[in-house]
């Protein structure tokens, strides 16, 4: 069975985010005043096969822990849905 997931990887609270800080100041310079903080994260979309939701969730969590996020500096969350066979990631 095909499963589709979106994994959101973010820097932990308290970890300096140079990209976010630069983006915040770019927004300020474009006239968007009052932007107090910007944090830049990553979105990973994936589609994979697993026999059932329990197995899919287990494998997704393992993928996040092992590779997609670095627990020293990042946290992750994900959304998991049953996908349609033959579609792309189907997430656009």
């Amino acid at each position: 069975m095909r499963w589709e997931a979106r994994v959101l990887v973010r820097l932990k609270a308290g970890v300096l985010d140079p990209q976010g800080a630069a983006t915040r100041s770019a927004l300020e310079s474009l006239g968007f005043s009052g932007v107090e903080e910007v944090r830049v994260g990553k979105l990973v979309e994936l589609a994979f096969q697993a026999p059932n939701r329990e197995e899919a969730e287990l494998r997704l969590a393992q993928m996040c822990h092992k590779l997609l996020a670095n627990p020293v500096i990042e946290v992750f969350e994900y959304a998991l849905d049953a996908g349609r066979e033959g579609s792309g990631c189907g997430l656009a």
Binding site: D17, P18, Q19, N70, V72, I73
Partner: peptide, 17 residues
């Protein structure tokens, strides 16, 4: 080495970008 856990910690983008 950091990613492999042979040494602790991680690298972030340079503060200056």
């Amino acid at each position: 080495l950091l990613e492999a856990g042979l040494l602790p910690g991680a690298m972030l983008r340079n503060r200056s970008l």
